[in-house]
């Protein structure tokens, strides 16, 4: 079965003019998005995330390489029949009402004429903006416009959703609602390709992530695999003398002085050595806990 998204050595070089030369926005990107997952596409500003999405949707043509959606070339318009797209900061004609926008997109998606109104109403209900269905978009807040964007993306029952910063502009309730919706859509068998800066959202939502840095793929896998950094054991003690601190550092631990306690971080394999030193020093242990590198720490490590 063809992957929802597959890119092979995808490259995009922008020409900046004779004097400025060129800029490589995406460089040799090869990824395969599995079926029925929430796929997180991360990277700092200018990493090439939006350019990649633009190539997938044929807004721009790649300089080299190719991309397919469910095995079909992205350059064919018919390929996008299976795709719902939410742009970053969606823009719609201000005079249109949400119900008109969603109905229009349902029609463009190929929904049967008889079902358009019903499905549009369902999409608006699902994104929580039914009560604003007849308010001109020019009068809606950024958050509500974002929800209109989500509604037009999901109407037409697409198999693949490409969401660029889906929670941008939403309040915490809206973000929670959107996250739940994304997980529901995944459970319905859809594949969600999610580009986001909010790493906490990605951590809670994504099954697989890819991290981009300056157009190149620097990490790919599950959030646990990407975090990669070893588990750490953190031991908090009340007080330590200078000699004991030196012994701990020699044993491979990081010793950090904090206002209320001293924090000792060590890899799991060295924890017994550290405990022996602490026992010998007669240190009073306040707390022991294991910690994993957060996605944000991994992101900073990979992409900063």
């Amino acid at each position: 079965m063809d992957h929802p998204i597959r890119t092979e050595n995808l490259r995009k070089v922008y020409k900046l003019g004779r004097r400025k030369g060129t800029r490589t926005a995406v460089d040799d990107l090869s990824i395969e998005v599995p079926h029925g997952v929430v796929f997180g596409f991360l990277g700092p500003n200018g990493a090439g995330k939006t350019t990649t999405i633009k190539m997938l949707l044929d807004f721009v043509r790649p300089t080299s390489g190719n991309a397919t959606i469910f095995g079909k070339p992205t350059t064919q318009a018919s390929t996008r029949r299976l795709v719902g797209y939410l742009p970053e900061q969606p823009y719609f004609h201000k005079f249109l009402r949400p119900v008109e926008v969603v109905c229009m997109h349902a029609a463009l998606a190929g929904v049967d004429k008889r079902d358009i109104r019903r499905l549009a109403a369902a999409a608006l209900e699902r994104t929580g903006i039914s009560e604003y269905a007849d308010t001109p978009i020019g009068k809606l807040s950024k958050g509500l416009t974002q929800r209109v964007g989500i509604a037009q993306a999901i109407v037409g029952d697409p198999k693949l959703l490409i969401l660029d910063e889906p929670t941008s502009g939403l309040d915490p309730i809206g973000r929670r609602h959107t996250r739940d919706l994304i997980l529901q859509l995944r459970d319905e068998g859809k594949t969600i390709f999610l580009s986001s800066h909010l790493l906490s959202e990605v951590e809670n939502t994504c099954d697989t992530i890819a991290v981009l840095k300056r157009g190149r793929l620097v990490a790919y896998g599950t959030p646990d695999q990407v975090r990669g950094g070893d588990q750490k054991v953190t031991i908090q003690v009340a007080a330590l003398d200078k000699q004991t601190k030196e012994s701990l550092r020699f044993a491979g631990a990081d010793v950090e002085e904090r206002p209320t306690a001293i924090s000792i971080s060590v890899l799991p394999e060295s924890v017994y050595d550290v405990m022996r030193v602490l026992e010998k020093a007669g240190a009073s242990i306040v707390r022991i806990q294991t910690e994993r590198e957060s996605l944000e720490e991994a992101f900073l490590r990979l992409a900063a």
């Binding site: 807004f59 029949r81 797209y85 969606p90 463009l108």
Partner: peptide, 14 residues
């Protein structure tokens, strides 16, 4: 310019 074109051409229209 206003980027209202993006959601439209992301649909299966040429």
């Amino acid at each position: 310019e206003s980027r209202t074109i993006h959601p439209l051409i992301a649909r299966p229209i040429t």
